[in-house]
């Protein structure tokens, strides 16, 4: 068997795998949106002066940051309902959606830490200056502290996204038909032995081409904001 037939075989399977990759991207985008939103609340909760809220938020953040992503995925897949009924209509929750929710949890916990870290990196003097001018704590947080935090949170947030996209293939283990699952399917149906390595290399390249530019932009942004 020659080089060209392997290459043509790869090209034959490429659209199939690429559509699977589109699912990886979809899962990652949904999960980053959900996780960021939840993470903001958790992050604020961590710095709250209300003891109960602070305790619960910190506990939740620690719990979900230190749990393996795969375990959280299993948790969501097994313990989430397969369908739910609203006003007589039954909706099925597809496995990719359940996996997406499973990914949102560690994303939220990680972003909660990013938020907490960014707020903590603002000098205490800013809080004091606002306080002596009569601003309440909440108003100070939103008008004075947070606007300064946004640039600090951007690079780690992008890093988190890069981490997330490289975690999405874990969904194949719980039955989601994404890029890795499709690559495995392709490999299993092609009998010729020389197909295995090039096919996996193709998959690795796909992820690399998507994630690497994001990492570069994140690093460039970090350098740019360094002077602030």
């Amino acid at each position: 068997m020659s080089e060209t037939t392997i290459l043509t075989d790869i090209f034959r399977w490429l659209p199939f795998v690429l559509w699977g990759f589109a699912l990886n991207i979809l899962m990652s985008i949904l999960a980053i949106m959900l996780g960021t939103a939840a993470g903001v609340f958790l992050g604020f909760g961590q710095i709250s002066h209300v003891r109960l809220i602070g305790r619960i938020s910190r506990l939740a953040t620690q719990l979900f940051r230190n749990a393996p992503w795969l375990v959280l995925l299993f948790y969501c897949i097994f313990l989430m309902p397969y369908s739910f009924t609203v006003s007589g209509v039954t909706y099925n929750v597809p496995s990719w959606l359940r996996a997406t929710l499973g990914f949102s949890v560690p994303v939220a916990a990680n972003f909660s830490e990013i938020v907490r870290g960014a707020i903590g990196s603002i000098p205490k003097g800013q809080w004091e200056a606002a306080e002596v001018l009569g601003y309440t704590r909440t108003v100070t947080l939103f008008r004075i502290i947070l606007p300064q935090c946004v640039t600090r949170m951007l690079p780690p947030w992008m890093n988190l996204y890069a981490l997330l996209i490289t975690a999405t293939p874990l969904a194949s283990i719980v039955g989601v038909d994404e890029a890795l699952a499709r690559t495995q399917a392709a490999v299993q149906s092609e009998v010729q032995p020389g197909f295995l390595i090039p096919m996996y290399l193709t998959l690795l390249t796909m992820f690399f081409l998507y994630a690497y530019p994001i990492s570069r932009v994140s690093a460039a942004l970090e350098r740019r904001f360094q002077t602030v």
């Binding site: 890069a162 490289t166 999405t168 293939p169 874990l170 890795l180 295995l196 390595i197 992820f207 994630a211």
Partner: peptide, 16 residues
């Protein structure tokens, strides 16, 4: 850093 650990592991175990 820019490719999935799972794919790397499969690559080593199955491919290599």
């Amino acid at each position: 850093r820019n490719t999935p650990l799972l794919v790397q592991m499969y690559f080593f175990y199955f491919a290599v």
